[in-house]
């Protein structure tokens, strides 16, 4: 199904939100890259185990989102989870129980190729030990149809750092690529200073951006802030995804110095969801609701 047809179908089926198109790969020439177009879906911040007024339906929200993605007319090539799969707990046994449970729920996805990343709720209290038992490495790369994907871990260090070792690994990986290769970076926290006084940053994220800057076709997808956000650092686009538990306050110019609590629960769950990302001549994405309208 062609890209436009697929989006039209999503709209007709009441499954598509706003379509966002940006010149994310401005230097990409249609014939210059190997591989065809494809799409993948981003889930983020499921916070399995959360119980609270910000989402009284938290126990079912992930399952609804999985049903919605399973109903897509064309299944994505793969699915990524950009962190905070579980809500934090200081009990290592309970942490593992939550990871086991969320892994079982995610097993309900039709798509079998699933890529995970940790959030601080999963990994910061034990430096990723339990996470690795259930979901594997916290940072890695893979290639898909001519696109190089890099998953970065900016949460296993409780101080929200990538760390020198991972930055050296990133530098070595990037050196193997040409400056016009298509690169997608996935992280949990923003790599740039989105709102430092709300701790919406990565302590050494600027070093990663410096390493990426020589590459012309880079886009970053991340989570953590529980809402859409679109930001450019030079030619590199950064896109935050909605969560599947509750939205966070918006960091507008009149926002208070300390991050306010989440807004009251909206039973429509329109401020939650996943994202369907189309990798074509440009990168286009559609916000998917938790449940079909």
């Amino acid at each position: 199904m062609l890209q436009a047809d697929r989006r039209d179908f999503l709209k007709l089926a009441g499954m598509a939100g706003v379509t966002f198109t940006a010149g994310l790969f401005p230097s990409r020439h249609a014939s210059a890259q190997a591989g065809g177009d494809f799409h993948f879906v981003q889930f983020s911040d499921t916070h399995w185990g959360y119980k609270g007024p910000a989402n009284p339906d938290a126990e079912h929200t992930l399952e609804k989102a999985i049903a919605t993605v399973n109903a897509l007319p064309q299944q994505p090539d793969f699915i990524v989870f950009t962190g905070d799969l579980t809500h934090t707990t200081e009990d290592p046994k309970e942490r593992r129980a939550r990871m086991k449970h969320v892994r079982e729920i995610i097993g309900g996805l039709k798509v079998r190729d699933i890529r995970f990343m940790p959030g601080e709720h999963d990994a910061a209290l034990d430096k990723g030990e339990a996470y690795r038992e259930f979901f594997g490495d916290t940072h890695y790369t893979f290639d898909h149809k001519g696109v190089h994907f890099i998953a970065l871990d900016n949460v296993s260090d409780p101080g929200a750092k990538l760390g020198d070792e991972q930055l050296a690994w990133l530098a070595a990986d990037l050196k193997q690529h040409k400056s016009d290769d298509r690169i997608v970076v996935m992280t949990h926290r923003p790599l740039f200073d989105l709102r430092p006084s709300w701790d919406w940053t990565t302590a050494d994220g600027a070093k990663a951006i410096d390493l990426l800057m020589p590459y012309q076709n880079v886009v970053v997808f991340y989570g953590h802030i529980h809402q859409e956000n679109h930001h450019m650092t030079g030619h590199i686009a950064h896109h935050a995804a909605k969560s599947l538990v509750f939205p966070q306050a918006t960091p507008g110019p009149n926002a208070p110095p300390r991050r306010p609590p989440p807004p009251p629960y909206d039973a429509s769950q329109k401020n939650l969801g996943t994202r369907d990302i189309e990798m074509g001549k440009t990168v286009t994405f559609v916000e998917l609701p938790v449940a079909k309208a």
Partner: peptide, 19 residues
């Protein structure tokens, strides 16, 4: 003005409100 200070070492459930 008003300026935030906060804990930036993840310390558990409740860390995000520690400021």
């Amino acid at each position: 003005g008003s300026f935030a200070f906060f804990c930036d070492v993840f310390c558990g459930d409740g860390h995000e409100e520690m400021g």
